[in-house]
Design a protein around this nucleic acid. Structure first.
Length: 194
DNA sequence: TTCAGGATGTACT
DNA sequence: GTACATCCTGAAC
C-alpha cells in the first residue's frame, strides 16, 4: 500500500482531521510492520487557536517542525513522560497539525501489545484490551514512536506513514481534550472520532 | 465503575 | 518556578 501523497496533507487542517479517520497508520521498525486504524483525531491551527503550541506563529525549538510543510511528523514530550504524535498539515509556514488521539490494531498486534504491556495480545487483561491504544501517549508507546521521529517526512514511505484504510460514515464531533486553559479555543469542535 | 493523586522533564515566564 | 494536547495505580463504592 502506497503512502498517502503530499497533497493530502496540504489540505485544510479540519478536512485532514476528518479524512484521517479510518486511515491506516503504518510504523516500520526493525524490519517489522505495525499497522493501526486511526479512530480519533484533533485539529490544532496556529492562526486562531490558543491551544496550539504554535499559536500566533510562535516559533520555538519545540514547534519548529510544525512550520514544515504538510506531511511532516510533529512529536513532542508531554507531562514529562509521554509522547504525542501529530501530522503536520497545510503549506510550509502554516504551523498546523492533527493530533492522533487513538487507534486500533490492524497488523502486528502482538508486537504492539509487547511494547505496551510486555505480553502478547491473547494474554492481555480485559482492562488492558479496553485501554490498548485509546490515547495519544498509549498509541506512541505501542508503536514505539519517540521524539527521534520528530520532523520525519511522512510521504517517504519509511518508518512512519499513512495509507488508505477503511471508509467511514458516521463521524462524531466534539470539544478537544485537556486544553481547558485555552480560553475560547477550548470550545472549538475540533475533535473527531468514529 | 469512578476518582484523586502522583510521576516526571521540558519549555517557557 | 509553573504549566503541561497524559497515564497508571490504588482505594472507595
Amino acid at each position: 500500500m502506497q503512502p498517502l501523497p503530499r497533497q493530502f496533507f496540504l489540505q485544510d487542517t479540519i478536512t485532514v482531521s476528518r479524512a484521517l479517520l479510518g486511515k491506516h497508520l503504518v510504523r516500520e521498525i526493525n524490519g517489522q510492520r505495525l499497522v493501526c486504524r486511526i479512530t480519533e483525531t484533533e485539529a490544532y491551527i496556529a492562526a486562531s487557536d490558543k491551544a496550539c503550541h504554535a499559536y500566533n506563529y510562535k516559533r520555538t525549538p519545540r514547534t519548529e517542525s510544525m512550520f514544515a510543510l504538510g506531511g511532516t511528523a510533529y512529536i513532542y514530550l508531554i507531562y514529562g513522560m509521554y509522547t504525542c504524535l501529530n501530522l503536520v498539515t497545510e503549506p510550509e509556514g502554516e504551523p498546523c497539525a492533527v493530533l492522533i488521539r487513538s487507534a486500533e490494531p490492524v497488523e502486528g498486534g502482538d508486537l504492539i501489545a509487547r511494547n505496551r504491556f510486555g505480553c502478547n495480545m491473547a494474554d492481555m487483561t480485559a482492562y488492558q484490551k479496553k485501554n490498548f491504544l485509546n490515547g495519544p501517549g498509549k498509541l506512541c508507546k505501542g508503536l514505539s514512536i519517540t521524539r527521534q521521529e520528530n520532523g520525519l517526512d511522512l510521504t517517504a514511505g519509511r518508518a512512519l506513514y499513512i495509507t488508505e484504510g477503511d471508509l467511514v460514515d458516521r463521524i462524531q464531533v466534539g470539544k478537544r481534550i485537556g486544553i481547558d486553559y485555552a480560553e475560547e479555543a477550548r470550545d472549538f469542535l475540533w475533535r473527531f472520532w468514529i
